[in-house]
Design a protein around this nucleic acid. Structure first.
Lengths: 341, 341
DNA sequence: GCCTCTGTTGAAACCGATTACATGGAGGCA
DNA sequence: TGCCTCCATGTAATCGGTTTCAACAGAGGC
């Protein structure tokens, strides 16, 4: 079979078209600088040989990779894949590839060792970091490509950040619930060290203060892990409390949905007996029962902005350090007046 | 700043270590064939210079890319991102990168034109196709890397397939509902041309026949689009029917969740008045209310298998044409006996 | 008729590694 | 000692393009 033959190279095209390889290269990457006749001849030769460009060779010479790497904590999580989708959209218009690396550490290998080899100019032209739990020293190594942080951020990592306004989101949540007369509001947070958790907590406390509610005590928050399963488990704890809160603010929708599930199964009515709200506005939050009141953030847009910022950085432009994208309150049916109000 | 200096090359390491570039290369990629003293010297020189390997150069010489491309219909869809997660897991153990391309066509550019340049041996070492709606001719071009299809498949594309047993899933659904005494079951399908839709429909019809139920008429199915929104819209149609079905089998969980939402909002009880089941077992299906009876398929495993199959193909091994992964019925609370049974 | 300028083109250097082949020295054996 | 083998290493070709530089032709100005 001639199928086994090596693929044609630019040299073959040149010979067939009766020109030099330099001319073929020019005809491909910058057709306007070769004469019309030559261009036609080269095009014909390309068609006849079935030639396709070898990008590895081009990239070597041009000192680039043609791709951007995204570091995601959990690829299977729709929250991140939606951001990726925005990133992908922008990259595609520039002909760049999207490389994805799930930072979930395998047991035998710490994240640091595993990821380090990928943070190299010869592996990608730029990196978008979506994982706030990584060690900032990881990005210290020589040859690390330009960075942008999105969604989450790493303390001590000096790279531009594209973030949703998590503080404002927390504040909106507190004000919404306080406005419904809730005075005892439990906060179901994300993991302690997480940057989102910190920001949402900060906004939430600000919002409570603005509503002239007393600062919550240590029993008024539960540290969770962003999963629906945890939300359901938290419901059991809340049902057991003797002094039950009348509302719960969850740091994400998954936990809120799991929580509602657990509360309703435990005999409470939402929102009549207890209000629950989430954060993120994942697709399902509109379709669960009751539909979830939540803070909407725009994930695809966030991804696009991060990608655009990175591209600007890769071009060497001086860019602003940080972008914050607005969030808004989406009132659905899982929140209502405090009982007895 | 010395930061501006070009990154060190293998040549610099060689000079510092007092050996040739060939020896450095060997010390890096196959340390066992250099003497212990040389190895130490090279390691020291690498540490001192901060040298990192240029993968583009290596890849050019070794005629490889070091990455695998996944073509996904919709990256934001958790269904696919979970498969990607399985793929990623396998690739990482081999030191390969995962390239992701969302096949969603942009208005100005047909999928064919947009994707063709990526199907090239110089862009990836292999391709996993997760989109069954692509034109098989896309993969005909010279220089197309080894292919594997996963999850969905393309008629007329001769590449190994890794699929869930969709036919069996459809059959299990029909039997489950028939076993509860349902005789009039509506099928909310995926888009007509979709390969999953075809297989699930086939199994569903087989299951009905096995349960000795009459073949459904043209009014007994609604063609959907796999979204929760469509499920909710379908609920309105079903509520309007004068001869309402007692059960609905949805081709995926999203539509089922949207449908339940619409039905309950329309005043029906699930499952007392009408049973609903889904397909896929997405995470949320366990947390919606009522929790969804569904057909479980193992998406991460499917991704892993696809990746393993592709790796075998890339090594040139002769491999089986197709793998089918089992599915099973997961009975939760959205299905029950037919009313009056 | 000479000079300059512009538009095309080709020859060869270059990107940074890997690897086939050659070489030189150490050690084994007759 | 002489020959052969084996190990460690160096030299140089190679992967397949891009890009610098120089050459050349033809147009146009003086």
């Amino acid at each position: 079979m001639s199928d086994q033959a090596r693929p044609p190279r630019i040299h073959d095209v040149a010979k067939l078209a009766g020109v030099s390889v330099a001319t073929v290269s020019r005809a491909i990457s910058n057709p306007s600088i070769v004469s019309k006749d030559t261009r036609k001849a080269v095009e014909a030769a390309i068609a006849q040989t079935g030639y396709t460009l070898n990008f590895t060779a081009r990239n070597l010479r041009q000192q680039q990779v043609g791709g951007v790497l995204a570091l995601v904590p959990k690829l299977a999580n729709p929250f991140f894949s939606e951001i990726l989708s925005g990133i992908s959209e922008v990259l595609r218009t520039k002909g760049l590839s999207l490389l994805v690396l799930d930072t979930t550490a395998v047991p035998e290998q710490p994240a640091m060792t595993m990821l380090a080899p990928y943070l190299n100019r010869s592996r990608s032209d730029g990196v978008i970091v979506l994982d706030g739990s990584l060690d900032p020293r990881l990005f210290d190594q020589p040859g690390c490509p330009p960075l942008v942080q999105a969604c989450e951020w790493i303390d001590g990592l000096d790279a531009p950040r594209v973030l949703a306004d998590n503080v404002e989101g927390g504040r909106l949540a507190a004000r919404h619930l306080a406005g419904h007369g809730h005075r005892r509001i439990l906060h179901l947070t994300g993991p302690g060290g997480n940057s989102l958790t910190v920001a949402r907590r900060e906004g939430f406390l600000q919002g409570l203060a603005e509503a002239a509610l007393p600062a919550p005590g240590p029993d008024d928050s539960i540290e969770g892990n962003f999963t629906a399963r945890f939300g359901r488990e938290a419901a059991a704890k809340i049902l057991d409390l003797r002094n039950r809160p009348t509302a719960v603010f969850c740091d994400n929708d998954e936990m809120a949905i799991g929580l509602i599930h657990g509360l309703i199964c435990g005999g409470l009515r939402v929102p009549q007996d207890i209000s629950v709200m989430g954060f993120d506005n994942i697709e399902m939050s509109a379709y669960c029962l009751p539909p979830l009141t939540t803070i909407r953030q725009y994930r695809a847009r966030l991804g696009r902005r991060a990608a655009e910022l990175l591209l600007a950085r890769m071009r060497g432009e001086t860019i602003i350090d940080s972008t914050t994208l607005g969030v808004d309150l989406l009132v659905r049916d899982s929140t209502g007046p405090a009982p007895g109000e």
